[in-house]
């Protein structure tokens, strides 16, 4: 991290850009500290002997042992993961293609369609949950993984779409035209030229979709069956008798697994090169 800008008088002042860069990275560190403050606390408390987690009573691995034996909780975590991954993939597909088509073509009703896409973002979860449940019950569709995933895709794909659209705005239209002139089909042009260019926005959208799905409670409650109950449902239920440090332990394991996954995939990417 660059030091605060206190420079000896005789040295040359760094260029304006460098000062800005320094300030910007310092601020990023501050924001990350803000985001990680509760995470550090909850990981620390996962080793606390006290069940109610109010004061520090001593170090223990007990909660980790309990988590690994709590099959309903592990099962719920597994369900959450399956649901979040599947609905993220579907949201990315729906959102990216949708953003491109809305950007690329002009047709009657495009603005209405655009507005409609934004509606799930503003729709209170309870309304979406209950109305989807009524819909599924009316058409005789059973509750469970499919119903939950439909609900999750509905509220997360608009986030992907909006993120991708922001990136498309101001994209040089000549790029696609060049590809078309060189003999690519429109589909090829989209897949080989546009998608790679959109990748940062797609990644950003996917991260948001995953985050939303992973931690959603209300829509899930109304669309789930016993078999597809997710982690948030279990966690909110457990709050009734006081949050168990087991949940902290589970979160810590998940954070560790994510970080390990990132480094592992980095390593794999290097190997495949």
């Amino acid at each position: 991290m660059p030091a605060a800008p206190t420079f000896p008088a005789r040295r040359r002042w760094p260029s304006g850009i460098r000062i800005v860069d320094g300030a910007v990275s310092t601020w990023t560190a501050v924001v990350l500290a803000f985001l990680y403050a509760p995470i550090v606390v909850l990981v620390a408390y996962s080793f606390n002997q006290s069940r109610l987690n109010i004061v520090w009573q001593g170090f223990t691995f007990e909660w980790y042992r309990q988590v690994l034996q709590n099959s309903p909780l592990l099962r719920a975590a597994q369900n959450s993961l399956v649901i979040a991954v599947v609905s993220t993939l579907l949201s990315v597909l729906l959102g990216t293609v949708g953003a491109w088509l809305l950007h690329r073509y002009r047709f009657a009703g495009a603005r209405t369609l655009q507005t409609l896409v934004a509606v799930p973002m503003v729709m209170p979860e309870i309304l979406m949950g209950i109305s989807l449940l009524i819909l599924f019950a009316t058409v005789g569709m059973g509750l469970g993984f499919t119903a939950v995933i439909i609900g999750h895709v509905t509220f997360s794909f608009p986030f992907v779409l909006v993120a991708v659209q922001a990136r498309l705005r101001g994209l040089d239209p000549a790029m696609e035209e060049a590809a078309l002139d060189l003999g690519a089909t429109p589909l090829q042009a989209f897949w080989l030229v546009i998608v790679p260019c959109l990748r940062p926005a797609i990644v950003a959208g996917a991260l948001m979709a995953f985050t939303l799905s992973w931690d959603e409670l209300i829509v899930t409650f109304f669309t789930t069956s016993a078999a597809s109950a997710t982690l948030p449902i279990r966690v909110f239920g457990m709050a009734k008798v006081g949050l168990n440090p087991m949940l902290n332990a589970l979160s810590a394991i998940f954070i560790l697994a994510t970080i390990a996954f990132v480094f592992f995939s980095d390593y794999l990417r290097k190997l495949s090169r």
Binding site: L133, F222, T223, T224, A229, R234, G237, K240
Partner: peptide
């Protein structure tokens, strides 16, 4: 036993009444 949970009477009632499960 397939154990599904709720956190309030109204959650139970609204899911049941809306035709769920």
């Amino acid at each position: 036993v397939n154990f599904e949970t709720y956190a309030s009477n109204e959650e139970l009632l609204s899911k049941l009444v809306a035709g769920g499960g």
